[in-house]
Structures are given as structure tokens and as C-alpha cells.
């Protein structure tokens, strides 16, 4: 069959004289369809100017950058900044904190939205379901400054509700936000409080795709709702759970550092300082742009490798890729 096709294609070769060349075809296409390129142009120019041009600027990670010389004219120093970073205790600590905070967040935070989705699915009253869903999605839309403000107020040593409760129980007040051992529980707890409800949407969507016949036959077999939840619903959404888990592991270097900047203080750097807050302090506050850019480049390269691996692994689990 393929053989035949090829001869069929070769046959009209005699007409090539009249056929347009590749160049002419492109010109014809541009004449007819130039308008789509005009529509695309602003977005492409924007990306070049605001996302790709900074990638060119990343070379300062290998340079002794001076504001006066500019990016191109600053002298090369090779891997000097990386050597400085990897002998810097603060940077090593920042990497360790990033991974620890992410891993703890994953361990405690990952199951919550799954559990919530399973529970929402068992609510019989549609009104009750709607009202509770509306409430638990809300914190997702509130800015990190406000969330941090609420946390700071609630945990404040004098007026905060948490210490009022401790006092009421006969315990002493704790100045939570200055204590390194309390930073992670507060940060991770806040993250779960803010995002668990909203993250359950993905699982609820997966649950709504489960075939009703499975439940019907289970009912015939006399299964209880509890059994159906664990033996039908949960296994049915397992592929979604695995994909979400892979994405989260791929993004392990991504900690919501905006929230950390708002909540941490020198007293808690020990457990709170992550790579991006380190970059923020060294670069944007301290003016060591080249060193901070090197830290950022290291972070971005490792994150890129992790995300690409996560993407290719999750492709194996499902036909649809993440992108």
C-alpha cells in the first residue's frame, strides 16, 4: 500500500515547473495569513522582553557584576559564586530548609484535600454541600499579606487568641513567631488551612467521573457507604492522586516564599530561611546581585530537571501530559 502511494506521488512530478517553490509557498502563506502573526506578535515580544531577556541576564551568575559596567561588560569569574555558595552555611541551610519544609508540607498536606473530596462526596444534602464548599474554598482567594496578618494577630503574645487559650488552660504565653521550633508547624498549618479546600476540586472532578454502575452493583451486593468510599471511590481516583503527587514532588523546591518573607524574622531564620528568601535578602536587599543570581540559577536548573522528570513519569500514568 505504501509502495503504491509513493508511485502515485511521484507520478505528477512532471508538473513541478508550475508548482511553487518552498519560498513562494511561504510568501503566499504570509500574504494570506499575515494577520495571525500580527495578533501573535505582542505576546511574543512581551515574552522576549520580560521572560527571555532575563535569561540572558542570568550570565551574571558567572560574572563579577557591577551596576556601572552593566551585564555584558562585567568580567567573567567562572564558577566562583557557586563555590562561595556551597561553602556558605546559610545557603546550605536554605536548601535544607526548602526541602524539609516542602517534604513536611507534602506529608501532612497532601492527604487532606483527598480526604475532603471523599467526604464532600458523601454529603447527601446538596445545599449543605454547596455552603460548606463555598466556605472552604474562600481562604485560597485571600492574599498572603492578609493571611500573614491574621496569623501574626492570632499568635501574638499579648492579645492573640492562641495565647489567650493557653492562658485559659493555665499555661504560659509563648511568643510563637520568634521561636524556631514553632515556625514550621505554623507555616505548614497555615498552608493547609488556606489551600486544602481549593485543592479538593481536582479530586471532586475525578470522583464525578466514576461510573455510577459501579455503585449500583455494589449496592446490590449489600455494600455500605463506608465500604464503597474505600473500595470504589478511592481506587477510582487513584490515577489522579498519583499524578498530583508526582507534580508536588516535581515542585518540591517551590515553597511559597512570599508567605515566609512575611512570617519569618532573624530569630527564626534557622528553620525558616529557604532558597528564595536567601536570594531576596542577599540580592534585592543586600545588593549582591551576582551571588544571588547564581543561587537562583542553581535553584531553577534543579527545579527544571525535577519538573521535566515529573512530567515524563506522569505521562506514563496517563495519556494526557501535564502541559
Amino acid at each position: 500500500m505504501a509502495e503504491l502511494d509513493r508511485t502515485a506521488e511521484a507520478e505528477p512530478a512532471t508538473y513541478t515547473i508550475n508548482q511553487p517553490t518552498r519560498m513562494e509557498r511561504i510568501i503566499d502563506h504570509l500574504k494570506a495569513d499575515w494577520q495571525i502573526y500580527l495578533l501573535l506578535a505582542p505576546t511574543v515580544i512581551w515574552m522576549l522582553l520580560f521572560l527571555y531577556k532575563p535569561m540572558y541576564g542570568l550570565q551574571i551568575a558567572f560574572k563579577d557584576y557591577s551596576v556601572f559596567r552593566g551585564i555584558a561588560a562585567s568580567p567573567w569569574v567562572g564558577f566562583e559564586h557557586f563555590e562561595t555558595l556551597f561553602t556558605n552555611d546559610q545557603f546550605i541551610r536554605a536548601i535544607r530548609n526548602t526541602v524539609t519544609i516542602s517534604a513536611l508540607g507534602l506529608f501532612f498536606g497532601f492527604p487532606v484535600p483527598i480526604l475532603l473530596a471523599l467526604m464532600f462526596n458523601e454529603v447527601l444534602s446538596q445545599t449543605y454541600k454547596k455552603v460548606t464548599q463555598t466556605i472552604v474554598y474562600l481562604p485560597h482567594f485571600i492574599s498572603s499579606v492578609i493571611i500573614a496578618g491574621i496569623v501574626i494577630t492570632a499568635f501574638s503574645p499579648s492579645a492573640g487568641i492562641v495565647n489567650s487559650l493557653l492562658n485559659w488552660l493555665g499555661l504560659d504565653s509563648i511568643y510563637f513567631l520568634t521561636r524556631p521550633e514553632w515556625f514550621r508547624p505554623i507555616f505548614i498549618g497555615t498552608g493547609i488551612w488556606q489551600e486544602a479546600g481549593f485543592s479538593s476540586i481536582v479530586y471532586l472532578a475525578a470522583i464525578s467521573g466514576v461510573s455510577p454502575t459501579l455503585y449500583e452493583s455494589a449496592v446490590v451486593d449489600g455494600a455500605s457507604r463506608w465500604q464503597m468510599m474505600w473500595k470504589i471511590t478511592l481506587p477510582s481516583i487513584l490515577p489522579t492522586i498519583i499524578i498530583m503527587l508526582i507534580i508536588r514532588i516535581g515542585n518540591i523546591l517551590e515553597v511559597s516564599f512570599e508567605m515566609i518573607i512575611l512570617l519569618y524574622q532573624p530569630a527564626t531564620y534557622e528553620t525558616a530561611d529557604v532558597v528564595n528568601t536567601f536570594i531576596y535578602r542577599q540580592g534585592l536587599q543586600g545588593g549582591q546581585y551576582d551571588l544571588a543570581a547564581a543561587a537562583g540559577l542553581f535553584n531553577a536548573v534543579v527545579a527544571f530537571i525535577l519538573v521535566m522528570s515529573a512530567n515524563s513519569i506522569s505521562k506514563r500514568f496517563s495519556r494526557t501530559s501535564l502541559w
Binding site: H29, D33, L40, V44, F50, P54, G57, I60, I279, A292
Partner: peptide, 30 residues
């Protein structure tokens, strides 16, 4: 649009910015 020439390339250009980010400092200097 399917007739967009180099469609794969343009789409990859968008997707790449979601995987790889130059970071805080180069963005600020830019």
C-alpha cells in the same frame, strides 16, 4: 490556529517559561 507557521515552536516558547524561570534577580535587573 493550525495554519500558524512554526506552531509547535511558538507553543514551546510559552511552555518553556512555565518550566524554567530566570529568577528574582535577573527579572529585577531587567
Amino acid at each position: 490556529r493550525k495554519r500558524l507557521f512554526g506552531r509547535r515552536f511558538w507553543n514551546l516558547m510559552v511552555a518553556f517559561t512555565m518550566w524554567f524561570n530566570a529568577g528574582l534577580i535577573p527579572f529585577f535587573l531587567n
